[in-house]
C-alpha cells in the first residue's frame, strides 16, 4: 500500500512551506548554534591571550590563497542559484552545467585548503601548537567537512538524482532549492570566518 506524504511538493497553507524547506531551516538554526559556539570560544581565547596577535603574525597565514578561496566559494553560490533557476525555466542542460561548475568550485576550494594545511604541517604547526592553531584548524576544518557534505549531496543531485526530473520535476526542483540553502549557509559561514581568522 502506497502512502502519499503530504506537502512534499506543495506548501502547507498555514506555514507557506513544504516539508523539506521547514526541515532545512530548522537544521540551519542548529548549525548557527554550532558555529556560534565555536565563534564564542574563539572570542574567549583571543581576548584572554595578550600574545594572540603575535601568534597570528608568526603563523604567516596565506591571505592571497584564502581570498581566492572566498571568491571561489562566492562563485559556487551564484552558480548554485543559477542551477535552481535553470530548473524553474525547465532547462535541465543548463542545470547540469551550473551544478557542474558549483562542484568544480567546491573541489578547487578543498584543493586550496589542502595546500594551506600541508604548508602549516610542514612548518610544524599543529592544533596542539597553540590555541590560535587549535581555533584555526577546528573552525576551518569543520567548515571543510561541511563542504565535503555539500559535495556529496550536490554530486548526487547532479547525476543519479536527476532521474526524479522525469517523474516529479517539481519535487526535484525543491530538492535542489533545499540543497542550495545549505550550500549558501556554508558560504555565509566562510564570509565571517575569512576576516575573523585571516584578516582581523
Amino acid at each position: 500500500m502506497d502512502i502519499e506524504i503530504p506537502y512534499n511538493v506543495k506548501e502547507r497553507e498555514d506555514t507557506g512551506l513544504y516539508n523539506s524547506k521547514l526541515g532545512i531551516w530548522l537544521f540551519l538554526a542548529s548549525e548557527i548554534m554550532l558555529f556560534g559556539a565555536l565563534f564564542s570560544t574563539y572570542i574567549i581565547l583571543r581576548t584572554g591571550d595578550p600574545n594572540w596577535m603575535l601568534h597570528v603574525k608568526e603563523a604567516h597565514l596565506n591571505i592571497p590563497l584564502a581570498t581566492i578561496n572566498t571568491a571561489v566559494l562566492i562563485l559556487s553560490s551564484v552558480t548554485f542559484v543559477m542551477s535552481w533557476v535553470s530548473l524553474k525555466l525547465k532547462d535541465l542542460y543548463k542545470f547540469k552545467m551550473y551544478m557542474g561548475i558549483t562542484l568544480l568550485c567546491s573541489v578547487i576550494f578543498l584543493v586550496i585548503k589542502y595546500f594551506e594545511y600541508t604548508a602549516k604541517f610542514d612548518a610544524g604547526h599543529y592544533p596542539s601548537t597553540h590555541n590560535f592553531y587549535a581555533v584555526y584548524f577546528i573552525m576551518t576544518g569543520l567548515h571543510g567537512l561541511h563542504i565535503v557534505g555539500g559535495i556529496i549531496v550536490n554530486a548526487y543531485l547532479w547525476i543519479p538524482g536527476t532521474k526524479m526530473w522525469n517523474s516529479d520535476p517539481e519535487r526535484f526542483t525543491n530538492r535542489v532549492e533545499v540543497a542550495g540553502l545549505y550550500w549558501h549557509f556554508v558560504d555565509l559561514v566562510w564570509i565571517f570566518l575569512f576576516p575573523s581568522i585571516y584578516l582581523l
Binding site: L17, F80, V81, P195, L200
Partner: peptide, 25 residues
C-alpha cells in the same frame, strides 16, 4: 571588517537564500 562581513552576509541570506521574501515561520 565585521561590518563589511555583515553586509556580505545579508546579501547572501537576503538574495541567494531568498530571506527577503520568505514566509513568517
Amino acid at each position: 571588517g565585521l561590518s563589511i562581513a555583515c553586509i556580505k552576509g545579508y546579501a547572501v541570506a537576503g538574495y541567494f537564500m531568498h530571506l527577503n521574501d520568505e514566509s513568517k515561520p
